[in-house]
Design a protein around this nucleic acid. Structure first.
Lengths: 270, 270
DNA sequence: AGTACGGTGACGAAGCGTCAGTGTGC
DNA sequence: CGCACACTGACGCTTCGTCACCGTAC
């Protein structure tokens, strides 16, 4: 499945410790789960240019850089970018892989949230057909039109997130709602009961993890956004008042605990 | 935006209480978030045949049935079915909307889990680029090839689910893993502490909801699958032994609590 | 008389699948 | 000599976007 690049053109300039790896077209195709036709096409349009062997049949050769580039291509393709747009992005002088990966993460999260909305719509439709609920005509198509419900503002955050949360909330059944309320109360009561142990205590952090999961029932967010929410807990009067009524020091405590939680996870997968 | 069907052909056969609603092509297009061109095309290929006014410009008219059919079309389209396949499905004499909705739910869940895998891959790649992890070449493309990782067996359940869980587990950071372990322990300890109150008690049910969320960190499942997992808790020796070591009656208790939980949510959105 | 909305072709484009025909190394 | 794998065209397919042109109701 893999061969060293020593016998191939283009590898004579590096005698580094790391062996330069090269792939034939079928090897890369199998690795990435695409067809060889696709790779030839990507070569043809300059999206993923291949080196050639010069000998043999002028066979295409792919190295590690090509592999990384292909991964980027596939991420963008998964997000329905057009191929020439992808090429323009990747060939931009200012292109930064890490920034791109973070951007892709954001977009994929959005997609996933999108599918969550579709699941809600399916459930509602089922309930409707069984006579257990009434749907407006618009609701039958909630989640389909990307332009309408994910106009970048809804994913920014602030009031829109609250709107979106309310929408999801209303679509749940009373039993569901009751269970979620109970979970929410329990989370905050647990935090309150353990304030004396400090924000960094393991069981406090585990509770913050529960909070994170809880928040994600309404809002598909990552740790970064979660941290932003924690800022709201101290700065937004509405949140602040709620928490202060439980304990005057609760807003700051939760904020600190969440920040700790997010810092610990900053370098880690979600 | 909407007009009664009284002035249109095809509505004279029903003088029911429920007013027959009809839409022009732009109305339906705006409602569903598609273009009028798309609707004309769907009419042309017989995917979504429209009635005509006979008068005027022979304008297209859509009724509630068409609206439902369009919703089905859009669900399948979201899942990348080809249009003639969709037509074949919808025109099948054995076609059942409710069954279709459940099937679509399954497929969309799979999609969503798929996106979760892609998010893992992104995180891993970021860590790799920062020198915090080492990835094999295959891992760069995990989640892209649909044929490889969602071969229907992985979504069935039993041993494969465990494999998949282990894979995700290994991709998390130690701090992440620690926090998840803490949450898991806390969930089961909480269940244990409240056994005396009965499986249907509200706070027990809230804890089962936590368990459901917890399980979903490893496995994108719905309530039905969750119930199946609870069956495993009593029937699979490995699970059973773990829980019995905490309390002899725990397996049955959790099972009962989960069944109650699932029953209560059976008619409700996830 | 303009404008908003409806109609019917017809062309085109994106992203490959597929088929045909031709090397080349073992 | 066959077989696997690589190459190069070339055509076709799907799903609409777009453009041109026309009709009709207000």
């Amino acid at each position: 499945m893999r061969s060293t690049g020593d016998d191939l053109a283009g590898s004579n300039d590096e005698n580094a410790l790391e062996v330069t790896v090269s792939y034939t077209i079928t090897e890369l195709a199998r690795l990435a789960g695409v067809s060889t036709r696709t790779l030839r096409y990507y070569d043809e349009i300059g999206l993923l240019p291949a080196q050639r062997t010069d000998r043999n049949n002028d066979e295409r050769v792919y190295d590690t850089d090509a592999l990384m580039r292909l991964q980027q291509i596939l991420f963008y393709r998964e997000l329905d970018f057009r191929l020439d747009d992808i090429r323009a992005l990747l060939d931009d002088a200012a292109y930064d892989v890490l920034r791109a990966l973070h951007e892709q993460k954001r977009l994929i999260r959005r997609r996933r949230a999108h599918l969550g909305t579709l699941l809600d719509t399916i459930e509602r439709t089922i309930a409707h057909l069984q006579g257990k609920a009434i749907m407006s005509d618009e609701q039958f198509f909630e989640g389909f039109d990307p332009a309408r419900y994910e106009d970048e503002a809804r994913q920014r955050w602030g009031a829109d997130v609250v709107d979106e949360s309310m929408r999801r909330w209303r679509q749940w059944s009373p039993t569901d709602q009751a269970s979620v309320v109970a979970e929410g109360e329990d989370v905050f009561k647990t935090v309150l009961a353990n304030m004396a142990d400090g924000a960094a205590a393991p069981h406090v952090q585990a509770t913050i993890d529960r909070l994170f999961q809880y928040v994600n029932r309404f809002w598909d967010c990552d740790v970064q956004a979660f941290r932003g929410l924690a800022d709201l807990y101290v700065s937004d009067p509405r949140f602040r008042a709620t928490f202060e009524s439980m304990d005057p020091g609760l807003p700051e405590f939760i904020h600190e605990a969440v920040v700790t939680y997010c810092d610990r996870r900053a370098d880690a997968p979600t």
